[in-house]
Amino acid sequence: MTDGAKVWGLHLLVLAAVFAAQFLLPPYHATNLARIMVLAVFAMGYNIAFGYTGLLSLGHALFFAAGMYGMGLPVWHLEWVSVPALIAGLLAGGVMAGAVGVLALRTAGVSFMIVTLMFAQAGYLTLLYLNSWTGGDEGFVVASAARQAFGFSLATDTPRFTAAFVLFAAGLLACLWLVRSPFGRVMVAMRENEERSRMLGYDPFRVKLVALILSGLYAGLAGAAYGMLFGYVGASFATIQYSILPMLYVLLGGAGTVLGPFLGALLMFYLIDITSNYTDAYLFVVGAALVGLVLFAPKGILGTLRERAWRWLP
């Protein structure tokens, strides 16, 4: 088998397994899987910026929230419905990432992290400040009339899972295509050696900006879908915690691998869900996971696997 066949085979197999899971798993886990798929889309977006392009952002909650409110506010105030609202959320994420990127990408490394962190904090405070428009810290419920698509209610299990799966599959395949495309290789070149790429004639600012906007589109879509599928929009999704979560997923699964974000989200979700049966101290688990990962497995699970065995893994 060629590497290309292996790559597509593996990813299609994973997608088929995930789709089949809804019929095999008990309902509790099926709904969890729907949540995980949406969170994985968020993490895939984070991975495009961090894993492939080397942009360590601490502000992705802003893009996620932009998508969530970009979907939720038109639903609330203008009575938009599912598909247009989701598209609005997707675009809001991209526009926000573009706006932040134009400024933040003038910096790099530690400064980039802090600038993105500060923008996200300002975004969070703005949501609180515009209380009468956003519902502030309490947030609001997404009207069930808006949660209808193609004759199905997204508030019911099978359509919800299907919708989450469609977004997840589209995100995964687009990401796979992206990283195997010439532009994807330029992104990696930026991460590995910005100076050399510049001498080869690429404009680092432009490449990074495009990567960040793509990342923001993913995050925005995930935020919009999370609000739409689970029926709630709130400012807590704009807190710094939601910038750290995708980073954690990506680090665990493997930065710079296509399947890593999904694997990381899946494992982390169940790590918390299961440890919470035994201890209140699940925050400690999250913290220990972060420290343990950077210390002992900085490449994450799939990154290590790629290093040791499957060199063809994208």
Partner: peptide, 13 residues
Amino acid sequence: SHVVIGSAPRAGE
């Protein structure tokens, strides 16, 4: 309140 508002839709479903 934010927990109640965030959880109530799922309880309804």
